[in-house]
Design a protein around this nucleic acid. Structure first.
Lengths: 344, 344
DNA sequence: ATATCTCGCGACAACGTTGACAGGAACTTT
DNA sequence: AAAGTTCCTGTCAACGTTGTCGCGAGATAT
């Protein structure tokens, strides 16, 4: 491999001058600089980052520990957001996935620490509690999409309750009052938060609710869930003397099932009944017709903010909840709206 | 940071002996080794990888250039597969995403090359032609899920034609003869390959086809497609004097729309008509009811094989096509099957 | 007893780079 | 004209590690 000395020899100067040129030191005559540049070009020289790191004691690497992030469809946006910010700061990311059984967290962490990472960003696939390895404290660390009750690290989470309130208010604003909320898997951290957000928005609007309005759409353990309840729920709900005018689904896969169940009973989403949801799972939310109105998880933003916290000096402590974004498509229109038009 | 010398001082030995202990050199007395281990433990020493790399001239890093891989739902499996194999070989991955405008391929590559990566794996989000930067030739490189007509690098692609033949034969074996194939976006590399695979399997079964049996389900540019045609197609097809007994969809999002269109017309998937598809897009394929029978893209395997090619000495040249896996769920059952039962 | 060998360990150089410092040439100030 | 200043360039040491070599002590062979 060609080194700084080879370049120096080629440019007929000392290797120190070459070093200066590489580092944009102004104390080099233009003529000399040009000669060195030419030599670099001619030899195809590239600075050896290992040597630089050793000398400067700064690796420029941030460790990104992704707890199954690559398996979850677009949690990868956390990575994208983190990378954008890291890039702006001239840092690079070294990513380790923990989804593969053979790779122990311990080993992954050792690897990153040996590479002298300047910070650690731990991201999880969905909003949940995570186990933080001890050694993460030996270097500045932040959490995204996951939280730890033992460790107190800067943490960035989706604001589930805000999302639920916002989407519920959207439906209320359309005139809907009879809204059924089909909850996601109870074992999700998001479940009680979304439910309480929904309840609060409804209460504020003066709508009374009992639990028949908030059934669970999913059964079984995480990962191996059964969505079969959705069809039964829709079936029952449509038989009510006064059926709901809107259905809020706790996650997009429930919405997909809701579309199906409604369609097979001759109901038209966005016309006979409004549907809205959470997550904005891409292939589903964009390709359903009518387009699914849903609250998009702030993955990109969690990645950005977490990385900014790691790299910037100004720092929020504790948990920061980031708002979902409303993806307003067509499914949230329905009878409620028309009811308002005719009544009001 | 604590170095090998600090450990040596603590263990009352020379730093060279510490080096031996770290590298499992047998030429160290057990008693000395134990003393060194204790010192390492006490001081929390970690070898400095930059120094090791500089001295040994081997970085142990493989560059993973992901062309928008993180945006595409589960193309991330390529990364997982690659990481599994890299791990087995004691290598680590340094990942760069190209999906973000601000990061030029050139800069990303420079960074990787300066870090002295021992190999490069270029993965793309979906099966398509990619532009390979010149410098990729300065280091062993392979391609996964993308191909280049200029460069001739070992390349691993999904075997679209095999997939189409296999799924078509499955339907044929169930007794179906009247099969409509709704093609994906024409601009996809996969489109003509899947179509010809379908045609070939049908021809071999002695079933004649004209183009009314193979409509396109999607219009518009990649990324901004309209799926609206699917509903029209299904509508038309169900009015045929003899409607199809099976519908093969060119991708899962088309299948989702097909389910919806059929449901709203009172047809029951897996009962009145069979449906099958390609890709196995996770949230869609598993949560549709009945479960969608689909050919799963070999993402994991592409990642594994590509990395194995990079790290192993035995090497296939040119393009290797990897088979899809049949995910047999319930949607592919339907009238055809029952027809066979009653006739045969 | 001497020569030879093996074992365990240490001294030293080197990897490619940057920081501290020195020095010569040209230019400015007194 | 001497002294000071600025500009450009070079020498040297150091970062933390591993490879090469050598040396003393004890074991083994002659």
């Amino acid at each position: 491999m060609v080194s700084i000395k080879d370049v120096a020899w080629e440019a007929k100067t000392s290797f120190k001058t070459v070093s200066r040129v590489i580092n944009d030191d102004p104390a080099v005559r233009d003529e000399t600089r040009a000669r060195v540049q030419a030599a670099i070009e001619a030899l195809g020289y590239r600075p050896n980052s290992a040597a630089r790191i050793m000398r400067s004691q700064r690796s420029g690497v941030i460790g990104f520990i992704s707890d199954r992030v690559t398996t979850q469809p677009h949690a990868g946006d956390i990575l994208r957001g983190a990378q954008q910010v890291a890039d702006q700061h001239g840092k690079v990311l070294m990513t380790v996935n923990l989804d593969d059984e053979s790779r122990y967290p311990q080993r992954a962490l050792d690897m990153l620490l040996e590479r002298r990472v300047e910070g650690l960003l731990y991201a999880s696939d969905y909003h949940r509690e995570v186990d933080i390895p001890e050694e993460m404290h030996s270097v500045p660390s932040v959490l995204a999409n996951g939280f730890s009750t033992q460790a107190s690290l800067p943490t960035f989470l989706p604001d589930e309750s805000q999302a639920a309130q916002e989407i519920t208010r959207l439906l209320l604003a359309q005139g809907h009052r009879r809204i059924v909320y089909i909850g996601p898997n109870r074992r999700l951290v998001a479940a009680p938060l979304r439910l309480s957000g929904f309840r609060q928005a409804m209460r504020e609007a003066g709508v009374a609710l009992d639990t028949t309005w908030t059934p669970d759409g999913v059964e079984g353990p995480l990962g191996g869930e059964e969505h079969s309840r959705v069809e039964t729920i829709i079936d029952g709900v449509l038989r009510w003397p006064e059926p709901p005018t809107a259905i809020l689904c706790g996650q997009d896969s429930i919405a997909m099932q809701t579309y199906l169940a409604l369609a097979s009973r001759g109901w038209c989403v966005g016309h006979d009944v409004a549907v809205a949801s959470f997550d904005d799972q891409r292939p589903i939310s964009t390709f359903l017709t009518p387009g699914l109105t849903t609250m998009a998880l702030p993955h990109l933003e969690m990645g950005r903010r977490a990385m900014r916290r790691l790299l910037g000096d100004t720092g929020e402590q504790g948990i920061t909840r980031l708002p979902f974004a409303l993806m307003e498509r067509e499914s949230h229109r329905g009878v409620g709206e028309r009811a308002v038009d005719t009544i009001g």
